[in-house]
Simulated scan of single mutants.
Amino acid sequence: MAQWLTGEVVENYAWNQDLFTLKVRTPKFDFIAGQFVRLGLEVDGQRIQRAYSLVNAPTADELEFLVNRIQDGLLSPLLHGLQAGQRIEVSQPPSGFFTLNEVPDGESLWLIATGTGVGPYFSMLGTAEPWQRFKRIHLVHAVRYASDLAYQNLAQQWLQQYPQQFSYQPIVSREQVTGALSGRVPALIESGALQAALADQLDSSAQVMLCGNPDMIRDAKQVLADLGLPKNLRRKPGNVTMEHYW
């Protein structure tokens, strides 16, 4: 049974009218980059809770969660309205296996996400592990609008710090944005447009992580399988590791 820590909201930062980062301070606890906890608020004597991935690196002093407000959601509108100093509950222990220690070695690491599914990748990239294990790291973030491209400041920081190792490729589907691709992730992989943009190949030396929209994951998994990149399983290591985000 989950235990609960009482946390304090430090900041509620808006990327746009619905997408926000909630920064929370709790007693320190250990987790593996890519894992999630549950956030909870008490409403009318009942705890409303939902799982959210930790965006911050495990060494950070504050917890960060990338959240999209769902207008008819039970919890996200309440989280959207939180202000600094208010209380929130955080579940223990952290959970999940969408972590780099579950990913086999390879030449390149492709971190592909839609929407808030990019969150766990920022936690992973805030650790030493990916930089030590992979020669090339590609962060691919697919969104509807440019304002949904959260944490670009971190991506730019890594581009400057690791110019020969790190690439960042945004994909924006509902408006034209300089430097961004347009379209669905599976189609861009199938056509080779994503590989061309990143000047790299999706072959047996690549490890791919998929996180976000289940439709994207389903279709991308099939396209990658057709390219000879099977699903990664503990009993049978492969090339594609996945995390459905709802």
Rank of each mutant, 00 (worst) to 15 (best):
Q86H: 07
I88G: 09
V90Q: 10
Q92N: 09
Q92S: 09
P94M: 00
S95R: 15
G96P: 04
T99P: 03
L100R: 00
L100E: 07
N101E: 15
D105K: 10
G106N: 06
S108N: 14
S108E: 09
I112L: 15
G119D: 09
F122D: 12
F122V: 12
S123P: 05
G126C: 10
E129Y: 02
P130G: 01
W131C: 09
F134W: 10
K135L: 07
K135A: 13
L139E: 06
H141S: 00
A142C: 01
A142L: 02
R144I: 03
R144P: 02
Y145M: 09
S147P: 00
Q156P: 04
Q157C: 13
Q157T: 12
W158H: 03
L159Y: 00
Q161A: 01
Y162N: 09
Q164F: 03
Q165E: 01
F166L: 01
F166S: 04
S167V: 06
I171W: 01
V172Y: 08
A180F: 08
L181I: 08
S182A: 07
S182L: 04
G183S: 08
R184N: 10
R184D: 02
A187K: 10
A187P: 03
L188E: 03
E190C: 03
S191F: 00
G192L: 09
G192P: 10
A193D: 10
A197S: 15
A197W: 14
L198E: 00
L202I: 06
